[in-house]
Design a binder for these strands. Structure first.
Lengths: 128, 128
DNA sequence: CTATAAATCAGGATTAATTCCTAATTTATG
DNA sequence: CATAAATTAGGAATTAATCCTGATTTATAG
């Protein structure tokens, strides 16, 4: 992340402007609409850099491709492991305290911007 | 999960006896040591069934293959997104209350057996 | 028991998502 | 303006997981 690039700016913009949870492919298609020369590897490389620099979050999924969202205020995700739908939910976790406890017990510096939980959504429960 | 199978029993045993977080490949290799005829697809198919039936947990990773662990008392995971190491940690989450809140807000029936957080572990922080 | 149906299997082909590689281009630096 | 550093496009390669087919095993019903 040392030099400016038009492509990276556009990728950030796409993720920032979307309030949903996009896949790399979604982002690639959207950027490509504006800049047809952009390549998939540029999208993947930049998404990786942006995650490393805590500008966006990566959500690893049990089903389908990873998702990305722009890092705003902390919020939580409930993910359906059948269809991959992601819902935001509110819950008053003590993020700071959790971070400290984890650091103390495991030496891991947590980067999560919320807590992700998994289960089965309503419509997947019906048609099983 | 209607019929008995020797292969499935052995897969359960491997996951149960290991107190670490195994990949499908780890499990395949261990089962194969006892039963050289077992196939990879049998391992994948059964792991899927066992997850669906809440006998084991699947941990989706930002790096490398998914991991599996036997479903014992609830416990939490801190995962290094660089090297993929998984550490257990203790924290007194109100699992039941969280489950209710998520159900109410999102209609998702949570299956998690604990909470997973991500970050960078000590040794990955040093050699970056 | 034996016949039939249902579930499971092995082995390998296929797919999906991501990473890696290379030579060309762009951006920063002095 | 010249050189070094960062980034790119495009496509090949890799990885993990799923899917397919015909054979085998297990359960069920007579």
């Amino acid at each position: 992340m040392k030099n400016y690039s038009r492509q990276r700016e556009e990728i950030i913009k796409v993720v920032k402007d979307s309030y949903s949870h996009l896949t790399a492919e979604d982002i690639y298609m959207t950027v490509k609409a504006k800049d047809p020369a952009v390549s998939r590897s540029t999208v993947y490389r930049n998404l990786g850099l942006l995650v490393e620099n805590n500008i966006i979050n990566k959500i690893s999924m049990q089903v389908g491709a990873d998702r990305y969202d722009y890092r705003r205020e902390p919020h939580n995700h409930a993910i359906c492991v059948k269809c991959g739908k992601i819902f935001d939910f509110k819950y008053d976790f003590e993020y700071e305290k959790i971070r400290e406890v984890v650091k103390e017990q495991t030496k891991i510096e947590i980067s999560n911007n919320g807590i992700a939980l998994e289960g089965i959504c309503d419509s997947c429960k019906i048609d099983n």
